[in-house]
Computed example of a mutant assay.
Amino acid sequence: MAELAPPAVGDWDFPRGTASIELMTRFAAERGLPAGKLLAVTTLSPELLADPAVQVDARQELAVVRALAELDGSDAAALELGRRYRASTFGIFGFACISSPTLRDAMVFALRYFDLSFAFCIPHVELRDDRLTLELDDSRVPADVARFLVLRDLAAIVTVMRDLLPEITLEDLAFRHGPSAMDAYETTFGLRPRFGAGACRATLDPALLTRPLPQANDQTVALCAAQCEALVARRRQRSGISQQVRERLVRLGGVDAGMDEIAGQLALSTRTLRRRLTEAGTSYRALVDEVRQTLAEELLDTGVLSVEDVAYRLGYAEASSFIHAFKRWTGMTPAAFARRFRAARQAPPGR
């Protein structure tokens, strides 16, 4: 069995917009639940919640999920919530999927940019001649909300797939947990699932992959894909576990305390930190270089410190090692960099 495409991320710890939190607070209010309790567990004001440009850490959304589940953590509530997530909920990411030529194209696109979604369970889509399976990995989701999020995320995925191709039906569906609220399962998925299975897994007819999507548009999907690429590049660069490591390196002034020390500050093992950075598309060494380059440029730009002083402040034992590293980062020596910025500051306005 071959994987259709690997998901872009292996963990839920990626930044998100506020649309999902807004949807959950509205869902709670409509059900007569105290929606204010959901927003209270975040750092968001109602104004920020309504701003589509605001980005939040995944843990803020997780806190809202946990608060909602404490108010009503039933299977029926989780499934109904999942059905509220439509393709339009995901903004440009959703429009790209809708505009894709076929269901296969849409699924590959969604997996490639999965960190533009609001999911916590990571999907793996596998294909062989007679079976297309979608399995949700919840192994890293906190246990107290794992069942709630499995149901919410799978219900959302199936709902969005039907937005793309209304005739989609599931051939089989299995969950690890036990049965409850069977009517809600049938309403959401169109069949009675099996329970007590080894994984959360949905099975579809692989012939669906080649079906043309009714709203396919080559120009629209190309435009949306370009915007998604730019958005996800910014998010992956400056957020999540990478940003947590950056912040600690900056506090140390760019001095490399070692990966073991940074991992300890994050309450992670060194192996786990290395794996999570790899999943985020970077490495500890790359982040050290990035922080050191940024700090070096800022220090050199002051015009006050010598190259030797900057090297010392960044933790280099010898200035020559710093000069070699700086030239590798920027293509010029620190002295040449400082001269260039000094000349730019002294140039008359308009020149």
Rank of each mutant, 00 (worst) to 15 (best):
L209C: 08
T210V: 13
A207T: 12
P206C: 04
P206T: 05
Q215W: 11
L231I: 05
A197L: 04
Q227K: 14
L213Y: 04
R238S: 12
H177S: 13
T203G: 05
T188E: 01
A207Q: 11
S180R: 14
C228F: 09
L170C: 07
A216V: 04
A184S: 15
C200S: 14
L208S: 06
F195D: 01
A222T: 14
F175T: 02
R201Y: 00
Q219G: 09
A184M: 11
L209E: 09
G196L: 11
V232E: 12
A230V: 15
C224Y: 00
P179A: 10
N217Y: 02
Q237R: 15
M182P: 03
R238Q: 09
G198L: 07
P214D: 07
L208R: 10
V221M: 09
H177L: 07
G178H: 12
H177E: 06
C200M: 13
A174M: 10
M182F: 04
G198Q: 08
R234P: 00
G178I: 08
V221I: 14
R176L: 08
G196E: 09
Q215R: 14
R236M: 01
P212D: 08
T188C: 13
F189T: 03
V221G: 04
A174V: 14
R192N: 02
H177Y: 07
F175V: 07
R236T: 00
S180F: 00
Q215E: 10
N217V: 05
A226Y: 05
A233Y: 06
A216M: 02
A202D: 02
A225W: 06
D205V: 08
G178C: 08
A226T: 10
L191R: 00
A225I: 05
Q219F: 11
G198F: 07
L191T: 01
F189L: 07
F195W: 06
L208E: 00
N217C: 15
A230I: 13
D172M: 03
L223K: 10
R192C: 01
A226M: 08
F195Y: 12
M182H: 02
L231K: 11
S180T: 12
A174H: 04
F189A: 01
L209W: 08
A181P: 01
A222G: 11
R176N: 02
R235G: 01
M182L: 15
V221S: 12
D218Y: 07
R194A: 09
L204E: 00
Q219C: 08
E186S: 03
L191A: 02
L209M: 09
A184C: 11
R176P: 04
L204D: 00
R176M: 10
A230D: 11
M182Q: 12
Q237V: 04
R236H: 05
G198W: 09
P214K: 12
D205H: 05
P206F: 09
N217R: 10
A216W: 04
R192T: 15
Q237T: 07
A174W: 00
E229M: 09
P214V: 13
A202C: 03
P212S: 08
C200P: 10
Q215G: 03
Q237F: 00
S239Y: 06
R192S: 08
H177F: 14
R176K: 10
Y185F: 15
A174F: 01
V221H: 05
L209D: 06
A174N: 04
E229R: 15
E171I: 06
